[in-house]
Simulated scan of single mutants.
Amino acid sequence: MLRPPTVIFILVSVFLVWSWMMQRSTTVTLQDTDYSLTYRVAWGFGMKERLMLGKTEAPWSLASSQWVEIWKKPYNSGAVLYVSNDGQTFYIGTYYKLGIAMPDSKRLVMTCDKADIPKLTQLGRHISASQDFEQVKIIDPEGQSFPSYIEADVPGRTTTGPPTPSKYYIDLQYIGRFGVVRGKSRGKDVRFVSSDNAPEPQMSLNVHCG
């Protein structure tokens, strides 16, 4: 008969292995820097996501966000990546909070403050002011919804490609987005897709903090 400490050790070990197996992550190198950004999703009794800023090739993170529970999981998962025109600051839209990564100072800040959202372009202002979904479709007929799944046939990347000027935010360039790959089962893969294969999602830096 197993002693109680042995039973506890076995149960804890099984739980840790199960937790590890139910996590998926992908890491992308930030262009023109020695830093990387990791997007991680954990499936368990619920679903949650987090971001981690690290040094390229280093096994540890320099800064990370807290785990965020996904509401109406997994539909609201994912993160959209931008860089400022001067290349110093990276903005990450996660639907819930706005992430601001500053590699030179090794900082990753998650904020709900709408004042931190970069200024909108004229198109962005028109969309933001509109309360009519049909009108938004007229204003921005090619607009991509966010958050959304990444389709299984869209190739992922581990390095960022050439960014494109943002349609919605002034002085920002759109790099690409992280997301859960569409699938039938929990624990499906996650992937980073660059801007050449993933059109810029609409107004993805807006925050929806509860």
Rank of each mutant, 00 (worst) to 15 (best):
G93D: 07
T94N: 14
Y95M: 04
Y95Q: 07
Y95C: 00
Y96Q: 14
K97E: 14
K97G: 01
L98M: 01
I100C: 03
I100Q: 05
I100H: 04
A101E: 01
P103Q: 01
P103H: 03
P103L: 04
P103M: 04
D104Y: 11
K106T: 09
R107M: 09
V109C: 02
V109G: 00
M110R: 06
M110W: 05
M110C: 03
T111Q: 08
C112Y: 10
D113E: 12
K114T: 14
K114L: 05
K114W: 10
K114G: 08
D116T: 13
D116Y: 09
I117M: 07
I117V: 15
P118R: 11
P118C: 06
K119N: 13
L120E: 08
Q122I: 15
Q122P: 11
Q122C: 08
G124N: 10
R125I: 14
R125C: 11
H126Y: 11
H126M: 14
I127K: 05
I127D: 06
A129Q: 15
S130W: 13
Q131C: 08
D132Q: 10
V136K: 13
V136W: 02
V136R: 13
K137F: 11
K137G: 00
K137E: 12
I138C: 01
I138D: 01
I138H: 03
I138P: 00
I139A: 11
D140H: 10
D140G: 08
E142T: 11
Q144T: 13
F146P: 04
P147C: 06
P147K: 09
P147D: 01
I150M: 00
I150Y: 01
E151Y: 05
A152F: 01
A152I: 07
A152V: 12
D153N: 11
D153L: 02
V154W: 01
P155K: 02
P155H: 02
P155W: 01
G156Q: 02
R157K: 14
T158L: 08
T159E: 13
T160P: 04
T160I: 11
T160D: 06
T160Q: 12
G161L: 07
P162M: 13
P163A: 10
T164N: 11
P165Q: 06
S166N: 04
S166E: 01
S166T: 07
K167A: 12
K167T: 11
K167P: 00
Y168C: 04
Y168G: 05
Y168I: 06
I170V: 15
D171L: 09
D171F: 06
L172S: 08
L172C: 08
Q173H: 15
Y174G: 03
Y174Q: 03
Y174S: 02
Y174F: 10
G176P: 04
G176D: 02
R177P: 00
F178L: 02
G179D: 05
G179W: 05
V180T: 12
V181R: 02
R182H: 10
G183C: 12
G183M: 00
K184G: 09
K184R: 10
K184V: 07
S185R: 13
